[in-house]
């Protein structure tokens, strides 16, 4: 379990992370979502004791990272796949990491096998493709068989096959009862990977909820209604306090009401319905709606 309490990081006058509190539970993948520059990486570095919080604290299983004994056995992290010496072999990279936390060399072979790098273990890490580097980073994170795992933008720049592999891998890790925190700026990716979301913007917590709740609350309930008698149904819905807008192809888009409610009203008033379909708002829209005010670097999109 990871607990952040009032976590704050200031660089001079810039506030990168602002009074952030959240909890990451074991057993599911938690997505750490926010636009670029929202403070995700800074938060992760503070969780791992690399950066010192200006205020607040973050605990892993009740302890700050810096007080963990042999931390690799508790926490595995992949913050940047390029944190390797280019002229050091993959195996040597893992060997020194293993040695530093008293892990046997057999773990090195085990994690190389787990990420499928056994064949290239003797090759220098500098020659690895991005996908291979990510795998090496994940191997390093898994070395100590930790209960808590952190991944910072693990699918960035990967091909679809690599993305699928990492997604499945993280879900399997969570299914084994581990705590998995994955950051991303792509909601669509997180919707497929994460069961729970922590959404931040400009260093502030926007929401923490299950992925489903997040999407529901952010998109709002809209129902598309088609009927030859819309002229009759429209005012009835407005009378009930629902918001009615003209949708595509002469249909009505009703928000604030469930399809059941609308069906009941139509039935009670003898209105014929041709279509009554709940609309699931797109994830991107939901995300944009929530973080729209919180994007650090705006670019006006031509309207």
């Amino acid at each position: 379990m990871i607990e952040a309490i009032g976590l704050t990081k200031r660089y001079g006058r810039t506030v990168a992370v602002d009074d952030l509190s959240f909890t990451v539970h074991p057993g599911r993948v938690t997505g750490f979502l926010g636009p670029n520059g929202a403070g995700k990486s800074t938060t992760m570095r503070m969780i791992l004791g690399l950066d010192r919080p200006t205020a607040g604290r973050v605990l892993i299983d009740g302890k700050p990272y810096t007080e963990l004994h042999r931390p690799l056995q508790t926490v595995g992290a992949l913050l940047d796949a390029k944190w390797v010496h280019p002229n050091r072999s993959a195996r040597a990279h893992l060997r020194w990491l293993a040695k530093s936390n008293n892990l046997p060399d057999s773990r090195v072979d085990a994690v190389l096998e787990a990420v499928g790098l056994t064949q290239v273990a003797g090759k220098n890490a500098g020659g690895f493709s991005l996908g291979m580097s990510q795998r090496l980073g994940i191997a390093a994170a898994l070395l100590g068989d930790p209960k808590v795992l952190l991944f910072d933008e693990p699918v960035n720049g990967l091909d679809p096959e690599g993305i699928l592999w990492i997604r499945t891998f993280m879900q399997n890790l969570a299914a084994e009862g581990r705590t998995v925190l994955v950051s991303s700026h792509l909601l669509s990716e997180m919707a497929l990977t994460a069961g729970e979301l922590i959404v931040i913007g400009r260093g502030k917590l926007i929401t923490q909820s299950t992925t489903q709740e997040f999407i529901d609350s952010a998109t709002g309930n809209t129902v598309l209604v088609r009927s030859p008698q819309l002229f009759k149904l429209g005012p009835l819905l407005v009378d009930k306090g629902f918001t009615v807008r003209d949708g595509a192809d002469g249909a009505l888009s009703v928000s604030g009401a469930t399809s059941d409610q609308i069906g009941d009203i139509a039935g009670a008033n003898g209105v014929v319905l041709h279509e009554l379909s709940p609309q699931r708002g797109s994830l991107e829209e939901a995300f944009m709606q929530l973080t729209g005010d919180a994007v650090e670097y705006h670019a006006e999109i031509g309207k």
């Binding site: 810096t66 913050l79 390797v84």
Partner: peptide, 22 residues
């Protein structure tokens, strides 16, 4: 300095968060 150059110093500090001993 190569540890800083290639950021392996961060991996080092993740493995040994006390830093001084490393």
């Amino acid at each position: 300095t190569t540890e800083y150059r290639f950021n392996t110093i961060r991996s080092t500090f993740l493995a040994v968060p006390g830093r001084t001993s490393a």
